[in-house]
Write a protein that binds this DNA or RNA. Structure first.
Lengths: 382, 382
DNA sequence: CTGAAAGCGCTAACAA
DNA sequence: TTGTTAGCGCTTTCAG
């Protein structure tokens, strides 16, 4: 059709209404602007509006321009539901974390959200709290909302998740490892680099008896961190007493409890590495309760470098893992699977780096020069 | 139609396909089960399936039963997008927080999520980071996704938000205050109760010179907390030096900086109350840097009682505000607006309570007995 | 109480 | 290149 000249008056073309099979006027529908209104106002068909909005390249630039102008005037935005229904893509990304109350995750979420929104995606967050039941429920929620992809940032690949999503052909990215199947990818983290630095740092200070408080070992990432620790110790010529390798759960409580176990040992480590910062903060607390000082009585190193690490007392020496990188890469990986055609060249995926950040929880071990003079002794708790 | 008898074999009724105007077989469509499949299998119309699923009371119980059974067998769940498109309700709730990296919010989010999911809603989270621009973008995101309601937990009512949402008749709940208009509500928090306890606690310990580090005062809630403090001081017969009332921003950095300002004062308070826990943790850090001890050199009280408060060194005395209550009440309030018919009786809405939790950051002021003996002195930083 | 049919607002064939 | 049109899967009148 094309009413050759575009309307030059701003007044909303008053006689506008449902053009198709409209017997009765819609009730209560005030000024809902939909694609039809835009089309009419721009003097084109709804198909053209749709194409213009979706940047289909075959649209006449002049028309596209006119459409966009009307879109601006009317402040129109497409109905996401309708779009999703017909296109099958929801532009929703799932983000599954293990525990939203662990400060590392909000930091990750923030970055993830930003990147996703930039790319036009909304995110659906779910927290598993390490509970099987929650995992099921949040998987179902994601499925129901028809997310286009899911980032499983629980630091543990749960076959569980994958199978459900695979059935619906929904791309999934994990951390550290993923099933070798299409539509799944993973982000590799170079735990060794940072942990090696940490162990070496302690060794240089004179520590030989170094303990490690792991995360829940059924999580791959937690196991990987522990493995990295053991390996680094060995490569440096140190061996860690079995008793000094204790399993925590990445929470404050877990850190506290684990440290209390360590304190009950007859032969205690002089330094402890933790699988994450929350664990380390829990350790600090246990030490505080036992009236022990960091780093005088025990050197402590965390992992993650959450913002708070700079503010603990004393400020926590820790291994930094950039959650910004993690988030960005996770989204990118998802995008790659969503738009395989995109010439984004599937850029190489180097490992996510980790590096030591020295603050004030590490120092000379007990028994070192300063203590020999003072003849300091350690209290342990029964 | 109605193939009178329900199929007794489990095998997917093979000849099933699009029943309406199906010229070509859908390509690649494997085993997508939609309402039609369920209807066919249950031997009823899709309308009945819809009604059964939505618990419309007029459905024959026997039929409903049959439908539900098939739903179970097929593991069917309705397509959210389609449902949203036609019904106009997305079953999506927006949750706007000021800063997701402030641990208080993840705790709130967790509770909110749980309640919302229980009620069949999904939540869309957005963090404003106190930036105007972000507020706009997240408002738009909520509008685009057609949320059914929004909880603005930024602790500051931004007319901004309300106007945009009001235009689309989307219910909004705020904290502390809301515009007097339909489709908006607010949660009242009884700041005074907890703050009064806190001030009194300090007074009893012997503190007279009590400072307050506020949040960003353009946030109503921050202003309310400060006002409560000033009022409590007065009612107890104390006055706070103007210099001791400093504005922070609810972040670690803000707390640290504010404390540094306080430390630069010739006449310093012996105790400080903070508008939130993060501020207090920042204060602890500033004190640590200045080589001052809590509570020996300064008594400190936070607000919120985030989980971490129990783990600071020393553990933080703080005023608890239950984020569980907050979340529950926010969702309920939203529900009330969404289903005005619901006989939920619009239960009374008592204020959210706050109460003091004494831990270890409060003690006798400097100058009290213990220090007189020691002749302790304070270092301040220039 | 149940079924047939009309769309919700949009995208994607297919035609022109 | 643009317009027409058929649905996406569901809820909801409106008849029966």
């Amino acid at each position: 059709m094309s009413s050759s000249s575009s309307p030059r008056t701003k007044k909303p073309s008053t006689s506008k209404r449902k053009n198709v099979s409209a017997q009765r006027a819609p009730v209560g529908t005030e000024n809902k602007i939909d694609i039809r209104v835009v089309a009419a106002r721009a003097g084109v068909s709804i198909a053209t509006v749709s194409r213009a909005i979706n940047h289909v390249p075959t649209v006449d630039p002049a028309l596209a321009e006119r459409v966009w102008q009307v879109v601006g005037e009317l402040n129109y935005f497409p109905n996401t539901q309708a779009r999703a229904l017909v296109s099958g893509r929801s532009r929703l990304l799932g983000l599954i974390v293990s525990e939203i109350t662990n400060p590392f995750f909000p930091e990750l979420i923030q970055e993830f959200e930003q990147v996703a929104v930039e790319r036009g995606y909304e995110i659906l967050i779910a927290s598993t709290n390490y509970e099987r039941k929650k995992m099921e429920s949040c998987t179902r929620r994601m499925l129901e909302r028809k997310v286009d992809g899911v980032a499983v940032m629980t630091f543990g690949i749960e076959e569980f998740f994958f199978d459900r999503f695979a059935a619906d052909k929904i791309p999934v990215v994990f951390i550290d490892a993923a099933p070798l199947r299409p539509l799944s990818g993973f982000l590799a983290v170079d735990y060794r680099a940072g942990i090696y630095e940490a162990v070496q740092h302690l060794a240089v200070l004179g520590h030989r008896k170094i303990g490690f408080i792991a995360g829940p070992l059924r999580l791959r990432s937690a196991a990987a961190r522990k493995a990295a620790f053991v390996e680094c110790m060995r490569s440096i010529g140190l061996t860690s007493h079995q008793d000094w390798l204790v399993e925590g759960d990445h929470t404050l409580e877990g850190g506290r409890d684990a440290m209390q176990k360590l304190l009950a040992l007859p032969d205690q480590p002089t330094a402890v590495l933790c699988s994450n910062d929350m664990t380390a903060i829990g350790v600090q607390h246990a030490l505080f309760e036992a009236d022990l000082k960091v780093p005088d009585d025990l050197s402590l190193i965390g992992f993650d470098d959450i913002h708070l690490a700079e503010y603990t007392i004393p400020p926590l020496t820790t291994v930094r893992m950039s959650c910004k990188d993690l988030a960005l890469r996770a989204v990118n990986l998802l995008m790659e699977q969503l738009q395989p055609e995109s010439a984004k060249a599937k850029a190489a995926h180097p490992k996510i780096e980790t590096k030591l950040v020295v603050r004030q929880t590490t120092g000379l071990p007990r028994g070192a020069l300063k203590d020999l003079a003072a003849g300091k002794n350690v209290k342990t708790r029964g």
